[in-house]
Write a protein that binds this DNA or RNA. Sequence first.
DNA 1: CCGTGTCAAGAGCAGTGCTCTCGAATGTGA
DNA 2: TCACATTCGAGAGCACTGCTCTTGACACGG
Lengths: 232, 232
Amino acid sequence: MATRTAASIRARLRAEMTDEIKAVARRHLAEDGANLSLRAVARDLGMVSSALYRYFASRDDLLTALIIDAYNALGEAVEKAEGAVDRGDLAGRWMATCHAVRTWALVNPAEYALIYGSPVPGYRAPEDTIEPAGRPTVVLGSILADGVASGALRDGHAERLPKAVRAELKNVREAAFPAVPEPLLLRGMTAWAALFGAVSFELFGRYQNVLEDVAPFFDHQMRQMATYVGLT
Amino acid sequence: MATRTAASIRARLRAEMTDEIKAVARRHLAEDGANLSLRAVARDLGMVSSALYRYFASRDDLLTALIIDAYNALGEAVEKAEGAVDRGDLAGRWMATCHAVRTWALVNPAEYALIYGSPVPGYRAPEDTIEPAGRPTVVLGSILADGVASGALRDGHAERLPKAVRAELKNVREAAFPAVPEPLLLRGMTAWAALFGAVSFELFGRYQNVLEDVAPFFDHQMRQMATYVGLT
DNA sequence: CCGTGTCAAGAGCAGTGCTCTCGAATGTGA
DNA sequence: TCACATTCGAGAGCACTGCTCTTGACACGG
């Protein structure tokens, strides 16, 4: 009992310290970009760099923790926004998802770049990241699945696909979206690429000197993609 | 005359040295990713790190040179592939462009990441990069313009756009693609985002454990986007 | 009171970008 | 031909980085 309490106290302190390190690291990330300096983080925390290694085995470990947090933050934002829309309003759910991705990315550009930018060289994504990384796609897939179930997406996408494409899509479907027929899944994945392509373009400066106000442009793009998918 | 020759000899040697530095840097980039070490490059060249500063004022300068080269290499690959297709075959030209982007990216993943990944923190893209950076979009735009001129893309995209979207597109159109009407331009830009979104997804590992053979999948995606734009 | 586990501090290593100075070429003008 | 100027590479050095290892302080449970 006593040992449990003491142990849990220690664990709590440790968790608080870990969170504080991550918070400071996130701040540095937002200012200095991806080249995060452990020593600078330690300085901000009033301690010495070697002390950080009590909490994170390496710089990559700290980055991994930040990446997982970022994936979960984005996933949470998306799920919350999408969940606030009436279940029957498929197009509204789709648009809410797209806008949630964009606004989260605009608010947290460094973290977006961390997870959707070029992967860091030697870095290999650990297992823990793949589940949180999939949360936005799960949301998009559930919208399609609900549309199929309700009959709103019944027809219109019975097009014939090349055999090789069908085979690929069959794997994806069976692994993650069993309710979504292949042609619809393909269109959904294209819209998915367009969504993150557009957000990345905006965030990585590809619209510089081209677009003034991206918001309405993005909104209409996503709306068109929603009808492209079949959610009129 | 003599001074011209001597000066040009020096200039030639200097250019050769510059090219060699860039070549070695590119090799390092391909292996170690974006964290390029000037000292390692210098070691490979059998000289000392400070000597590199005779040719590039800073590491950022070297990276900028590599970025410009990458933009031009991609632009050249795209223009060459698209130029090899019969001018009247609009859909063929579109597909050639898309595939050229993808194959170039697959052959040069590090350089693709350099130009289409997350921008490095303190780095600010200089003027020299914006022209080569636009070459692929110019190719895509010219396909649409040719389609409009030949009448193949005459109608079907006379849809009404929100005022704000029209205003944005008007700027883009007047600055770069005067022959392309706004609704078509919007669809083209969405397809553009889908193209680079799909390539980035593939290169940055977003298809890991999801797709086996991306080539036919990508091909069909782009084919659908071609019809989405109106090039059936 | 004494062991045990946890923590931060400090020194140190190898590596980094970058600056400055110095010697050695090399070509130029008188 | 000789002195001058320019260009280049080498070396030392500064401040910084990630990371390791050792040391000393502290708190807790037996």
